[in-house]
């Protein structure tokens, strides 16, 4: 039994038939070929699969594709197309590059998506607020410190761009 869904992903409308049990992360990766979103666990604890669902950070391994019917999804591949991006990079992406916020890169798409949501809600987060906001995202390489510097860089950048 398959179900028809309509999802806007990175601005592009998609109409697909999916098995109801299809996880959103598998829909994005295997049906749409957007493999930037990663699977790092099966218990919603690592955050590697984080995407923005109607602007909110969610773990796409714990959302069924059918639940995203009618919704708008932004994956890492679409982050540079969001408001505030400049020269092909979102300020958060720029921050991660400038401040060495990634090593192996596997957690990075989820980290970036979670950071984009944070800065949307709180444009000037403190160190503690950044740590709190990234609680749902595991990184095994960086020790998080340079990720925090990356988010701060992005916050500063977004402020100057708004002016």
């Amino acid at each position: 039994m398959s179900v028809e869904i309509q999802v806007r992903v990175n601005g592009q409308p998609h109409q697909s038939h999916v098995e109801p049990r299809t996880l959103l992360v598998h829909y994005l990766r295997e049906v749409l070929g957007l493999t930037g979103t990663h699977v790092g666990c099966e218990t919603s604890l690592c955050g590697a699969c984080t995407v923005l669902l109607d602007g909110r950070a969610v773990k796409s391994c714990t959302v069924l594709a059918v639940q995203a019917d009618g919704a708008s999804v932004t994956t890492i591949e679409g982050v540079s197309g969001l408001n505030g991006s400049n020269g092909g990079l979102h300020p958060v992406q720029e921050g991660f590059w400038e401040k060495h916020g990634l090593q192996c890169g596997f957690c990075t798409p989820g980290m970036i998506c979670a950071s984009v949501e944070l800065l949307g809600k709180n444009p000037n987060p403190s160190e503690a607020e950044i740590r709190h906001a990234l609680h749902g995202n595991l990184c095994r390489c960086t020790g998080y410190q340079k990720i925090i510097e990356s988010v701060r860089y992005a916050a500063a950048k977004m402020k100057t761009r708004k002016r």
Partner: peptide, 19 residues
């Protein structure tokens, strides 16, 4: 220097085995 590896990784365009 900032890394040459990063652009593909921060755009989600890198390929791990599962990709």
């Amino acid at each position: 220097l900032k890394r040459k590896e990063d652009p593909r990784l921060i755009h989600g365009l890198a390929h791990y085995v599962d990709d």
